[in-house]
Write a protein that binds this DNA or RNA. Structure first.
Lengths: 230, 230
DNA sequence: TAGTGGTCTAGACCACTCA
DNA sequence: GAGTGGTCTAGACCACTAT
């Protein structure tokens, strides 16, 4: 049990919201008043209330005061761990197999995403991620070698492209798209599942500042679930 | 452009990480030192650095100091809006159709999730969510009427069960599971798609304090994508 | 225009943990 | 034991916006 003041106050405020003391959409007393009630500095109360606001539970406006959010933001935070960790968490042994690795001129859709010039080549990779030697996920990736030239010297025998990038590129922002798809022939073969099976896919593009690094699509073995909490 | 001190400092720190000034896994100067460098109070620098830590970009430990995270947490925050809003964002007109509504004794798996006694009934609902009169998502839901008795009096003609719950229950925590599935006969009929199509599903259970409220499974029309950013 | 949250400061003490 | 982040305070000024 964490028992800082701001944590405890946050919990107390949350309880008062849950109990209905402050109804949905209703106004909550001001910071000064509550700080006096809790016997703390306004700064401390502010931190607790700000935390609730960041979670979308209350809406705050200068002069307008703080209100209980009438429709709390349903925001789920999903962890996207390294595939190796994901596999090892299930107790299985991780492995990976690079099925394809070549320099190619990408199709227009990818070229645009990676912000490449026409006819400029990029590194194209197919990787099968294994859990106890059974296919766990199939990865199709394009890497912008202009941004990450060192990647050309990597054998990817010990660590996967996925992991190499995470551990080599300082910090990158990115877009993610989750979807469900019926697998095509190539993917079904790589995953060892019947064609048409429903697979969970994650399509991710990352960049560093203004420089595009990589775009990747990952198809998980049927039965895969992405868990989270609200 | 937001230009508070802590926001600006956070951005500056992030830039210094990206630039490689502080390498992956490397140690960052202490708060006191950086505060002096930026000419601000330690509190302000602390807030900026804490924000980076919350995003998983740096790892902080007392005495150990602050280090650039060697493998930044890949954490995506996904918004789970009301279905109505989700539909309206696409420019379509929202509608919903309650296909089934009855009090039933739930199967054991659901009974356990809702924490009900054996033979205790719960409200069972089938709802089809429509976008311009075309099925957009199919919802199967169980509601614990002991926790939310008022729901029995609701007609759900104007607003959907989904929305009624969001607007009536103060705040709830919950679990969410995202998956991909080949639709079964009943769902394919409700969505008007061929049996076996890959659909994106969200399975969500919510509760208020220790009281379970509802558990729901939502199947989206094929082609649905959940977008997010890192 | 006045009230409310947003931010910042300077200083203090504490808790954790590395050496 | 000592260094570093975690937290708290009391007070101040500012920015936004409801009335």
């Amino acid at each position: 049990m964490t028992s800082n003041s701001h944590t405890a106050i946050r919990a107390s405020l949350l309880e008062r919201i849950r109990s209905g003391e402050w109804p949905l959409g209703g106004r909550i007393p001001g910071e000064a008043e509550l700080a006096a009630e809790y016997g703390c500095a306004r700064t401390t109360l502010n931190r607790a209330m700000r935390s609730l606001a960041e979670d979308g539970l209350v809406v705050r406006r200068r002069k307008g005061g703080t209100r209980v959010s009438p429709a709390p933001a349903r925001r789920a935070t999903v962890e996207i761990p390294l595939l190796r960790e994901q596999v090892e968490q299930t107790g299985a042994c991780y492995g990976h197999d690079v099925r394809k690795r070549e320099m190619l001129v990408p199709p227009p859709s990818i070229r645009q995403r990676l912000n490449l010039r026409p006819n400029q080549k990029a590194l194209f990779l197919h990787t099968v991620h294994l859990a106890d030697s059974v296919p766990f996920a199939f990865e199709v990736r394009w890497v912008n070698t202009k941004t990450v030239p060192q990647i050309m010297d990597e054998p990817f025998t010990d660590i996967s492209v996925n992991e190499w990038l995470v551990r080599s590129v300082p910090f990158s922002s990115g877009d993610v798209v989750f979807a469900a798809e019926n697998v095509d022939a190539g993917t079904s073969e790589a995953l060892g599942v019947p064609e048409g099976s429903a697979v969970f896919s994650i399509d991710r593009t990352t960049w560093l500042g203004d420089d595009f690094i990589t775009t990747m699509k990952l198809f998980y073995r049927p039965g895969f679930e992405l868990r989270s909490s609200l």
